[in-house]
């Protein structure tokens, strides 16, 4: 019997659409301006996604998952829309 981790690894990856805003736009893939597709392993969380995108996980980063506030532990599913924001104030 394969263990749970092996089972997860054998599943196809989930496909997400990710949009990065404010100062996080510096982590956009080259040539990308709007939302872009990301594939990540099944069972991955917001925290894993931040790591995969190379974004240092500061607690001030706000993450939206299909229009609702996500936590770092929120699990990602196929076709999820992710938005990420760094805080900006003033003006």
């Amino acid at each position: 019997m394969p263990n749970q981790e092996q089972q997860t690894q054998s599943l196809p990856p989930v496909r997400l659409r990710v949009a990065l805003h404010a100062d996080l736009r510096r982590f956009l893939p080259q040539g990308v301006n709007g939302a872009f597709p990301v594939e990540i392993r099944t069972g991955a969380t917001v925290s894993d996604l931040l790591e995969a995108l190379g974004i240092p996980d500061r607690e001030t980063i706000t993450v939206g998952l299909n229009g609702e506030l996500a936590t770092r532990e929120s699990e990602l599913h196929d076709s999820d829309d992710i938005t990420m924001f760094s805080p900006m104030e003033g003006g």
């Binding site: 404010a22 990420m84 760094s86 900006m88 003006g91």
Partner: peptide, 15 residues
Amino acid sequence: RGFHEYGTGGAMQGK
């Protein structure tokens, strides 16, 4: 980067 591209208000959806 955020200021340069949008000024302020680029993270209103986050708030």
